[in-house]
Nucleic acid binder design. Structure first.
Lengths: 289, 289
DNA sequence: TCGGATTACGTGCACCGTAATGATC
DNA sequence: GATCATTACGGTGCACGTAATCCGA
């Protein structure tokens, strides 16, 4: 077996062509490298160099050896990289969610119980979340539909009620209840981060132009400067100027009420039991409020 | 970069499960291995072991690392093997031949001019020899047909005249000339090492049973103990008892006369010029004899 | 004379083994 | 008490750098 440090020196020489240059690159002395090349030749047991009086080059065998040596170094690097990457992923809880809102609610709860872990979160469709969970691309997922798979453990997390925020003088503001039907045809502002909500709205509002705005600050300014209705919810945290002088009315349709579910693989249930306990306690508190 | 000797120790531990067993396997002391495992953990920069008071095991990350470590060791081994194999092949002239006989004539000539090289020889069909030459599976090949390829350099080597050796009282022994036609239907002995000659004989002697014998000594005994004809040639070295009291008559057919050609890749012509020179001098001598 | 390779020589560190300690069964 | 892991300590080999030498452009 030939040691890595020798191979590094050997490959450095193979790349630079002269001992002195390679020694420079490696930050070692020329004699040290000269000796190392002797040693590596000895360990291979074959001649690797053409040695002239004041010039040393790789022979054909040496070139072959250098190619393989690079592979060894590459394998060594890969070992280090992959191991560290694995360790990092082991210390990270990867959360997938069907929308930002419930993820933002859950993250502080996870942090409380897994304070040493890093958390990453991303938004995707329920289907992708479920398949990703099975492939272990996610550790925890937040869904808005109950999954049917038996290998997935699932509990209610929180619910969200879609609402519409209207200027007080809007012709709908006086209504007791509002349904999607009432809104169809009216231009309405919506936040781009609402995920599946947008799909639900589009489904029920075939004649409405949805004015989707990704940036919350911009959205807030537009609301402030206009008399346009904007989608809202009982969970959404809205800037004050978005609600000042306005009324917020929940939508009466069944599909405007969503329950979020937290899920993990059945096999990981034990690992995340503290989180599931925390959210059920949490739910209780919110329900009674 | 993590050194090979550390990886060897790490993998040894991964395989044996306890430090003491692994230390035994490695022929080092237990403390030395304990220190090495600390060191490798330090170099990875992540935890690789579950350490209990009197028990140490790989954790999940450690298992991953061990798998990659084995790959590194494998790459190191492969580098050594392949390099040495290349060096050996560089020091070996690989000769392919359509028959044993011309190879046996050529080998001493090669040895004379490449005294430091090892020589390996094998028998194959002309087609395989030519394709093998192009793939550099052979350095030199002996053919019995002129190749058409322009990238192959080819020169006459020696010729061989097929003959038949008969008991003096055989009814064909008195004939001036004998052709395949005269022999068709007669049982004839032949040596298995004759390569393509057997094919030629079978082609012309559809009614003859060829009694092929691989072992020369056995063949010789059978000849001695019987009155069967046996194939022979001007080049074949036959034991005395195979010819005593017998006559050898060359076959008159054109296809019973073969010229062997020595060939190499055009690009290697220079390398083997001394051999080509030697065989042309050799041919001249034999031709005049 | 300068740049490149090798040889000679002294040094320090890193790894090793022995011995001792701690822990678990 | 037996087995296993870790800590302590002293020795040694090996890879290093500096200096000197040799060789060729």
């Amino acid at each position: 077996m030939i040691e890595i440090f020798l191979l590094e020196q050997f490959v450095a020489f193979a790349k630079s062509g002269t001992l002195s240059r390679a020694a420079m690159d490696l930050h070692i002395s020329q004699p040290a490298l000269s000796r190392s090349m002797k040693k590596i030749e000895d360990e291979f047991g074959v001649s690797l160099f053409n040695r002239e009086k004041s010039k040393i080059t790789l022979n054909d065998t040496g070139k072959i050896a250098a190619q393989y040596a690079e592979k060894v170094l590459e394998a060594d690097r890969e070992m280090l990289e992959k191991t560290i990457a694995f360790e990092r992923s082991r210390r990270t809880i990867i959360l997938g969610s069907c929308a930002f809102l419930p993820a933002n609610e859950l993250i502080p709860i996870i942090q409380e119980h897994f304070c040493k872990m890093a958390i990453t979160a991303e938004v995707a469709s329920d289907d992708k979340l479920i398949s990703g969970l099975k492939k272990r691309l996610y550790h925890l997922v937040i869904l808005h539909r109950l999954p049917t798979d038996s290998d997935i453990y699932c509990r209610e997390f929180i619910d969200e009620q879609l609402a519409i925020t209207l200027p007080s003088n809007h012709f709908l503001a006086a209504k007791e209840t509002i349904s999607f039907h009432d809104l169809d045809g009216i231009s309405i502002l919506a936040h781009g981060g609402s995920g599946f909500w947008l799909e639900i709205c589009k489904e029920h509002l075939s004649n409405t132009k949805l004015l989707v705005q990704d940036n919350m600050d911009t959205l807030s300014e537009i609301v402030d400067a206009s008399s346009l209705p904007v989608f809202n919810s009982n969970r959404a945290v809205r800037p004050r100027d978005m609600t000042a002088g306005r009324v917020t009315i929940p939508l009466s349709d069944a599909s405007a009420h969503i329950t979020y579910y937290l899920a993990c693989l059945n096999s990981e249930k034990g690992r995340y039991s503290t989180i599931f306990n925390a959210i059920s306690a949490n739910n209780f508190k919110k329900d009674t409020k």
